[in-house]
Write a protein that binds this DNA or RNA. Structure first.
Length: 423
RNA sequence: GGAUAGGUGGCUGAGUGGUCUAAAGCAACAGUCUUGAAAACUGUCGUCCGCGCAAGUGGACCGUGAGUUCGAAUCUCACCCUAUCCGCCA
């Protein structure tokens, strides 16, 4: 959510930002609506002031005066009720429009429509060269008894999977390593680990900017709650309606949670394997910091770099892209995706998104802090995937596969697995 | 799922229809006193929106939303949440 005052004063910038994000919205219409809102509100407030004034006098008035005042106020009340009706209607439209105004993308965000237009800004690692015909992760993992898609489909249905044996062990190894890498307070990363709820109320999804949008993307419970697709949602909602202590900022959280995605619009995409599943686990970095663009930018670079470092320590080739305007979410100012090399597909696949939001989310969630002057301000928020499982397994096994169908293990994971390869 | 009690400012807590703008205490901040601190005393002390260069001024907010009334923290209805007990349960 943007500040209506800011929108009014910078309508060209806001309109241009929406255009860059390929969001269809007319800011002029919103401002006309806001004019109407202000006009009626001011009229109601004047009437209410009159009502308050007379109401004070009624108890001490003589019986005749009193009756006259009450009669007068009946008239005021009636006209006020009419105005309140139309205000209610206007406010409904106003709030809906406000929720659809996107945050303004950063100057450095390239133009473009889809992820095809994202700009590669970094390439790391040597792509493996195989002197044999490499297998894809489905075949590799199935043969090694790491995954069972057939029974996954039997039990869960489309996109269902079991991680079995070393598939499960490797997942735990990655989780343990990630905990040590990000969540150990003896390292520089120093995030506070949090196991967060995946069941959230819808208001939390509005808060993060996932709604309004396609409700079809979420699994809903019979109580009207949603299953979150990322720990970003509960972690952001955790401090909603709070005034934080300046000294407690920045808040650095490492969320761990199951993630649920219906993938409603993706039925023909990635139908095989572990790339696109309905249910997975993810470590997520999330930061709440003071309201400063420079501070946000610095943390944004940091959390993205953290993920890059983690991937580098696993020795998997990757590149980082700067997302184009059309590939940004409603609230995002700027986003980097880290994508890992998938040899058999001969392409990079996204495993991480780092974005910052300025006060877009915190304004919706009402997360504030008192600055050094004692003034209340909305905090800034950022988040970045730390590591998603099982998607990470795809690149891991394909890049580390050997001619005999075994998979070598990255050195950093060997101590958790108690061996150096999966056979 | 059942029963009971509740939701008032940063916290505790009074307030059941009109005598102004929600009592009091605690905490916080500033000052006086003090070598310094504590104590004591004095003062300040909510958020959001509108108008105004400003001093200021108008409105809203007592869990949320609706209703009754000239007037609602107070009455009515619905919902949400919390606590305790019972039931069920990994």
């Amino acid at each position: 959510m943007l500040d209506i005052k800011f929108i009014r004063e910078n309508k060209e910038v806001v309109q241009a930002g929406a255009k860059k994000k390929h969001v269809n919205i007319n800011i002029d219409d919103l401002i006309v609506l806001d004019d109407k809102r202000k006009e009626i509100l001011s009229s109601i407030e004047k009437k209410r002031a009159e009502q308050n004034l007379i109401s004070e006098k009624i108890p001490t008035a003589t019986p005749e005066e009193r009756q006259k005042m009450i009669d007068d106020m009946k008239v005021v009340k009636e006209s006020m009720q009419k105005e309140e009706e139309s205000l209610k209607e206007i406010m409904k439209n106003w709030q809906d429009a406000m929720l659809h105004v996107p945050n303004i993308p950063d100057m450095s965000v390239p133009d473009g429509d889809t992820d095809k237009d994202n700009k590669e800004i970094k390439v790391w690692g040597e792509k493996p060269v195989f002197n044999f015909e490499p297998k894809d992760h489905v075949e590799l993992m199935t043969k090694l008894g790491m995954v069972d898609f057939e029974r996954g489909a039997k039990v869960h249905g489309f996109r269902g999977y079991f991680l079995t044996g070393d598939g499960a062990r490797l997942s735990f190894a990655i989780w343990q390593y990630a905990m040590e890498f990000f969540g150990d307070n003896k390292t520089s990363k120093n995030f506070i680990p949090v196991i967060s709820p995946a069941i959230v109320r819808k208001v939390s999804l509005y808060g993060t900017g996932h709604l309004p949008g396609d409700v079809e993307d979420f699994y809903m419970t019979q109580d009207g709650d949603a299953l979150a697709g990322t720990a970003e949602v509960p972690l952001m909602a955790m401090h909603s309606e709070e005034v934080l202590d300046l000294k407690s900022l920045p808040k650095r959280y490492l969320g761990f949670s199951p993630c649920y995605r219906r993938e409603a619009g993706a039925h023909s995409k990635d139908v095989k394997g572990l790339i696109r599943v309905h249910e997975f686990y993810k470590f997520e970095q999330l930061i709440l910091c003071e309201a400063s663009h420079e501070v946000s930018v610095a943390f944004h670079e940091e959390i993205n770099r953290n993920t890059e470092e983690f991937i580098e320590s696993l020795g998997i080739p990757y590149h980082t892209v700067l997302n184009c305007g059309g590939d940004l979410g409603l609230g995002q100012v700027k986003k980097y995706d880290v994508e890992l090399w998938v040899p058999k597909e001969n392409t990079y696949r996204e495993i991480s998104s780092a974005s910052y939001f300025h006060d877009f989310q915190t304004r919706r969630l009402n997360i504030r802090y008192k600055d050094a002057e004692g003034k209340l301000r909305y905090a800034h928020s950022l988040n970045c995937t730390a590591i998603p499982t099982p998607r990470i397994l795809v690149s891991l096994v394909e890049n580390y596969q050997q001619a005999d169908g075994s998979v070598k293990l990255p050195e950093v994971l060997q101590k958790y697995m108690g061996k150096d390869s999966i056979k």
